[in-house]
Design a protein around this nucleic acid. Structure first.
Lengths: 281, 281
DNA sequence: CATGGCCATCAGGATCACTTATCGCAGGTG
DNA sequence: CACCTGCGATAAGTGATCCTGATGGCCATG
């Protein structure tokens, strides 16, 4: 189970093509064929059907493991290399869309920071594998409970803020006049499943799935009645359309956390200090 | 970053010896020396001091990654191999100490099950790497919230029960007469840090650290006033010494979950069904 | 000062992992 | 129906690799 073999396996599976994977990885088609054969021999199971190329059940299972595995491997390498590298003069900050709020805007220095907006699920990976120096993620959580983040690597997690949540309802929704709602009141409602923005309730019965990272588009969808959206109250009220009704129960907050690999150094440390200043949670 | 190199690295670090690692891994000392040299060359950093052999800061960092990484690798391999293997006739069940309760005892068939008691943190790894067919873990959680488990592999998690919690106080403790306590009441108290048993509160100010997996010993310690213990009410009241006072806040329960790799088959499926029967949470 | 344990280094040989070249097979095309 | 094209499997060759065994330097011990 050489990581190289694993890497070509996931590439082949992604492209559904041996030759395509060979081109992408800079191997010959023959090498790729041998890689897959080696993996299949080692695991004593067919991993891919040929013609058309598609993963078998065993292959699917292996794919589920391979992604996180290769990610962790990259993270480990990046983490050790970072120890030797000079502290960054210019900071790259990975943020999930909802983490861009007043706190971040206030802490941001005039220059020297690159902001990279990513879906929340990808922020930890970006920080761990060294693509970014710091990360800001957000999500719903019980008050003062840490977020449930995918653990790609041992990252330092610091809470930087908690906000009230609200549900964004279309104008004229039966509950739009209420001062507050409970999630129970909305048990039968249809939600917008927007993994790229955050607040991923287990949206079993999602109305629309929205894959972008743009908040305005999400709010527009919700205001137009295509499904409900759970957002920080601040964002829901600024949406300009629809009605934001605060959430009164279950007791949930919109929590934002700062991620860093080890202890930040250089310019990253300064930014981290400004972000956590005030009320570390 | 070949996993083989990583494996010899962690072995060398654990034994603080190149030759020792060579003996254990079935290599020559020369090979081990070359492995470490290859890793250090690849990462461009010294990972180990020689004479005495000890990890450098970079080595420590790498060690933190290497363990989970190798675990995941084993888990992936075991998971795929399991698909091909025949469904087990005899089931091995990994359990954390507090998960051994009435529910398990009722579900256990007369024969054909091996019970392996492990610290809760090791149960997911045992299930993922194929040492056990099923696992029962427990821990404190908000009601109907899943436990926070180390994610060594994508495991199927099913809640099987939630119980009330209680604090085990020594006789004569100021709060021993109370009908219920809040954790806030015990903010200044000293707790027993017992990672092998479960309920790992972030015991910053632990009195004693207890590393066994035996509940009776833990209860005895608590009853003797060496520190407080948070336990399922059922266990705390059966302790025989000390006073069990139910926890009234924050709203926490003792939750037990069943872990299985994919969908259980054969005898494991039968046991899983009996364990989850009744009230899957 | 001799000795023994430990790690680094070197040289050599088996093995491995890639490339090039070729084959078999399916689908599309005239 | 013959032909071409694109894909994956296979065979053979070659340079790199990864081991072993031997040797050397260093340090602690008696």
């Amino acid at each position: 189970m050489d990581p190289h073999l694993l890497r070509t396996f996931v590439t082949v599976a992604r492209l559904s093509s041996f030759s395509g994977a060979a081109r992408e990885l800079g191997y010959t088609q023959s090498a790729v064929s041998q890689h897959i054969a080696a993996l299949e021999g080692d695991l004593r199971a067919e991993l891919l059907t040929r013609r058309p190329v598609a993963p078998t059940p065993a292959g699917v299972r292996l794919l589920e493991h391979a992604g996180p595995l290769l990610l962790r491997l990259d993270a480990a390498r990046a983490d050790v290399l970072r120890l030797a590298a000079a502290p960054p003069g210019r900071v790259t900050l990975a943020v999930s869309p909802l983490a861009v709020g007043p706190r971040l805007l206030a802490a941001l220095p005039a220059t020297g920071v690159t902001l990279r907006v990513l879906p929340p699920a990808e922020v930890p990976a970006a920080v761990a594998t060294g693509g970014c120096d710091l990360g800001l993620v957000d999500g719903p959580a019980a008050p003062s409970d840490p977020l449930r983040l995918p653990d790609v690597a041992p990252l330092t997690v610091t809470g930087v803020g908690e906000e009230e949540l609200a549900v964004l309802l279309p104008d004229g929704h039966p509950l739009a006049g209420r001062a507050a709602v409970r999630l129970d009141d909305l048990a039968d409602a249809r939600w917008i499943d927007a993994p790229g923005v955050g607040l991923p309730l287990t949206a079993a019965r999602a109305a629309v799935r929205y894959e972008g990272t743009d908040l305005l588009a999400l709010c527009a969808l919700a205001a137009a009645g295509h499904g409900l959206a759970l957002l920080p109250r601040r964002v829901a009220e600024a949406a300009g359309a629809g009605v934001a009704v605060p959430l009164s129960g279950p007791r949930l907050v919109h929590r934002t956390e700062l991620l860093s690999p080890g202890t930040p150094t250089g310019a990253a440390a300064a930014l981290a200090a400004r972000l956590t200043a005030g009320s570390p949670v």
